[in-house]
């Protein structure tokens, strides 16, 4: 339901296992083998980074809040789990997702404004005809079966930051990790509170080296193992034996204890942590120019921009 994740369409219809997601994507590629062979595309994660950049660019021009952009990203991810990318104009899909997400998140923008900003950002790939975006909206909503209410980890983070007495910096870091997770498959794999806990854990583990996450790529392995160590200690620790030590360290311990006593699936948190850390690693190899060229090529060649 609207305020209850457990009864939501998100949990019932839009949460997959890795295998299911894999199968969905494989099926799409098989249905369009010719297209797939003719137009190679970057890896899913790199495509996601590219889409995320475009959402952010459009969102910035429109002054859209982060939560609405997150909703748009989730719409795009859901949509492309059901529709082969090469059959669509991704720029149109991105703009439509932002347009629809803004309505759902109560910060609507006029369709003409969204189209004109789209034209400015992607002049060679975006029609000035508003009815194209209106039509794509039908397509998007239809593929999502009108299930447009989404639950984000931000709310869980807000609720939990007090419990773990996160500093402003730690909260901000956790927040940005949540922002980043929309570039991975995690929102289609795990519940928002699982993601929120992962973001807190990672923020606490990363916090000591204040350089932040962007520089973490080189030591991704270390981060993963540090997070993993913290979590595995959750299995063994009992409450009440908190060792004195550095602030962040104590907080990690507290989180571990809290997890040990909760019913939260620790394996899921471990998996989330690994996924995001490996994403940060993979991000290093991202080549924006290549992604753009590969996308633009099939859009032009197939006349999808018309």
């Amino acid at each position: 339901m609207a305020a209850n994740y457990w009864e939501s369409t998100q949990r019932r219809n839009w949460q997959f296992t890795r295998e299911q997601l894999e199968d969905l994507r494989k099926k799409l590629e098989e249905e369009d083998q010719n297209l797939v062979q003719m137009y190679p595309l970057p890896a899913v994660r790199h495509l996601s980074i590219y889409f995320n950049q475009q959402v952010a660019r459009l969102g910035k021009r429109l002054g859209v809040r982060q939560q609405a952009m997150a909703t748009a990203q989730l719409y795009i991810r859901r949509f492309y789990s059901k529709v082969e990318i090469r059959r669509t104009n991704p720029y149109l899909v991105i703009a439509t997702a932002v347009y629809l997400a803004c309505k759902m998140e109560e910060c609507p923008h006029h369709i003409r404004l969204v189209v004109s900003e789209g034209r400015t950002l992607w002049p060679d790939f975006f029609s000035s005809d508003t009815s194209k975006l209106g039509e794509c909206e039908f397509f998007l909503i239809s593929e999502m079966s009108s299930q447009m209410i989404v639950h984000h980890p931000y709310r869980s983070l807000t609720a939990l930051q007090g419990i773990f007495s996160l500093t402003q910096e730690e909260s901000a870091l956790a927040w940005s990790i949540i922002n980043d997770h929309y570039m991975t498959d995690l929102p289609l794999l795990y519940a928002p509170h699982t993601i929120a806990i992962m973001s807190i854990l990672l923020a606490l583990v990363l916090r000591p080296n204040t350089t932040g996450i962007q520089s973490a790529g080189s030591s991704a392995g270390n981060i993963a193992s540090a997070a993993h160590a913290a979590l595995s200690s959750a299995g063994q620790t009992k409450t009440g034996n908190e060792k004195p030590g550095g602030g962040a360290r104590t907080k990690v311990q507290k989180l571990a204890n809290w997890l040990a006593e909760s019913n939260i699936d620790i394996e899921a948190i471990v998996d989330c942590t690994q996924e995001i850390v490996s994403f940060y690693e993979f991000q290093e190899q991202y080549n924006e120019k290549l992604a753009r060229e590969q996308i633009n090529r099939f859009v032009k060649a197939r006349g999808l921009d018309k």
Binding site: M1, S8, K103, M104, G134, E137, F138, S145, S146, M148
Partner: peptide
């Protein structure tokens, strides 16, 4: 008839009705 973008109230009604039970 042209596609003009779905009104916000229709979007709300569609989304809410899809969740409610």
């Amino acid at each position: 008839i042209q596609y003009t973008g779905i009104s916000q109230s229709a979007v709300r009604e569609m989304a809410l009705c899809s969740e409610l039970s």
